[in-house]
Design a protein around this nucleic acid. Structure first.
Lengths: 345, 345
DNA sequence: GGATAACCTTGACACGTTTCAGCCCGGGCG
DNA sequence: CGCCCGGGCTGAAACGTGTCAAGGTTATCC
């Protein structure tokens, strides 16, 4: 373990008395080199503390061992869990993840895509800010694998991994209807997010299925999917005349639901006896809320993991790969916040 | 904007009728090339959609434009906020962050450090798993800048950015003592984490300062700093004989505090009337808890930002750089969970 | 014993940049 | 006129690795 500023494959070769090519083979195709040579070379590598230079490898091979992950918000536990899934899958494959946070800003997103292109990443896993993903098409043309995350692709020439948001909304509201609720509030926003609209659609479907109409579900749009916006929505709900006030709230996102819960509690409204509550995402803090939150669970980690695997698969067999749209099914997790059967009127 | 599989600096040179060196100069030292040439080259770059290959640049220059960030837990909002700070600072400088999650596992940490070394990152910002950072010394010897994050360096040849955990513990417990509490529970762990020990130290100091002794603070160690562990600790606290039971709980971390809060609520113990509660970190969910949580706030984002800046600074001026230990001061944020003055016995 | 094959190893080239010594050329100065 | 100077540009040499055709050495088989 010598201190030398930088030791290259050449130094190893010299020290081990073999050629550079052989050392390279020991590293990349250990099977084709004789056992004795291999162990000798490995010993020298260890002794010298040689660490291969991935930049050189990448230069030679064309593409490197990194991939980009672009999400809408690092601070949202949903995305951190997705990230963990990605990280697991790529870690096993010895790849590095370059983590980018677009913050919902198209400008930031674009700058990050430039950066990833310069890095010649193998692929990009991305939840795009808007649907005009013209930029992504260009990436693909340059040979960068693109995989849509938590967004279903409309094009068939791109992989996507998402969760059935319509079904999720359906599960939540069906559960509430079955518990006897007839006045339900839907809290979600901003409305331009496809996910929010789909969940709302699903909710409507469950209503109709039960012979109810849109009259039975009032919509409360929020400016952002945050805790503060949830508190605000709750105030608005409580402002309704008692007679027509919702007895249940379905939030398009757990952060919103936590905000709603907080405000309801503050105003002495009991959950679930006075108002039942169901969230979406089932982030860790949902189960940990003072009133454990019912929520629609998404396989977040699996989402990330699958996306990464799809990418690795395409990278390893570019020809044989068929693009696919993976859609997971969400699952309703019932906890205390909705565990109360409403007496029939 | 031609589709060509990959366009290099050479293609640009040919098309613009200049030499490769000139194109490189346009990119890196625009001032030394004549205005007319410069604009012509830029036009061609645009037309061809040329994107420089960072691997080649890195190979030539020795170091690239990436840095590594190694944290203990992606899922902990504390670290995601730190990450955001890092990302802000590096984004401005056009650098990429490779995000790694050691999960508190020395093995994973070590593998990630290998990976970062292969990437020839400029530097590594790390919250090490244990103190035996012999591995980090080796990194430094190889020319990788190392900066300790949320950990104070004992060595003087390494930068570190941290928060005064002793002071944090002091603030929390002084606050509780002043509110009249004489039996306090300290919840934290695992004990090998320096942060936990320091916060405990500070807590003790506040006690002594008020003329109280260690008898007045019982320690509840947890296996991990998670919500579940917090719930467990709360049960143990409630299992104490009523007479000597703590009237206040100080948790070394907000996740723990949320768990404690959840269990107390479940067991009908009122917060703060029956038991007051103070957490640590002031993550977003602290303010959003059903009983808003008092907490010791750390400048999380600033922590990350400062660490990144320190690294950039050292990278730009390796000689003139003096290593420093930046220590921020934490701040107590009092919310409902401890807003109750205990009647004097 | 020689031919053939099987197995290892070699050496040189390529990847896309940056860097640097040097070349060219026009202008200012003595 | 000869000289020097300096701005602008060129061309080639690295950087550290992967790849691949070709060479070398044994073992195998007739």
């Amino acid at each position: 373990m010598v201190a030398g500023p930088t030791v290259s494959i050449r130094d190893v070769a010299a020290q081990a008395g073999v050629s550079v090519g052989t050392v390279s083979n020991v590293l990349n195709r250990p099977d084709i080199v004789a056992a004795s040579t291999r162990s000798r070379v490995l010993a020298v590598i260890n002794e010298l503390g040689f660490v291969p230079n991935d930049a050189a490898r990448q230069l030679r091979r064309g593409r490197g061992r990194t991939l980009g992950l672009v999400v809408l918000d690092v601070a949202n536990p949903f995305f951190t869990d997705v990230a963990r899934g990605v990280e697991d899958a790529t870690g096993e494959a010895g790849m590095a993840v370059i983590f980018c946070n677009s913050d919902g800003d198209p400008g930031k997103e674009s700058r990050y895509l430039d950066l990833l292109e310069e890095q010649r990443v193998q692929g990009v896993l991305i939840t795009p800010v808007d649907d005009a993903n013209e930029r992504l098409v260009r990436l693909r043309e340059r040979g960068v694998l693109v995989i849509l995350l938590d967004r279903r692709s409309t094009r068939t020439d791109v992989c996507s991994v998402s969760v059935d948001d319509r079904l999720g909304g359906e599960l939540a509201v069906r559960h509430l209807v079955e518990a006897g609720h007839r006045q339900i509030a839907f809290v979600g926003g901003p409305w331009r997010l496809e996910q929010v609209r789909d969940r709302h659609q699903g909710a409507l479907h469950a209503l109709h299925e039960a012979g109810l109409s849109e009259q039975n579900m009032r919509r409360f749009e929020t400016a952002s999917p945050t805790v503060a916006a949830g508190r605000d929505a709750a105030s608005r709900i409580l402002g309704q005349p008692r007679s027509s006030r919702a007895t249940a709230v379905f939030c398009a996102n757990d952060l919103l639901a936590l905000g709603v819960l907080q405000e309801l509690t503050r105003q002495q409204v009991r959950v679930p006896q006075d108002i039942a509550l169901v969230g979406y995402d089932d982030i860790e803090f949902a189960a940990a809320a003072a009133v454990p939150l019912s929520s629609v669970r998404q396989p977040r980690q699996r989402l990330g993991r699958t996306a990464a695997q799809l990418m690795l698969e395409e990278a390893n067999d570019p020809e044989g790969h068929r693009h696919q749209q993976v859609v997971f099914e969400p699952e309703l997790v019932v906890r205390e916040s909705s565990r109360y059967a409403r007496p029939v009127d």
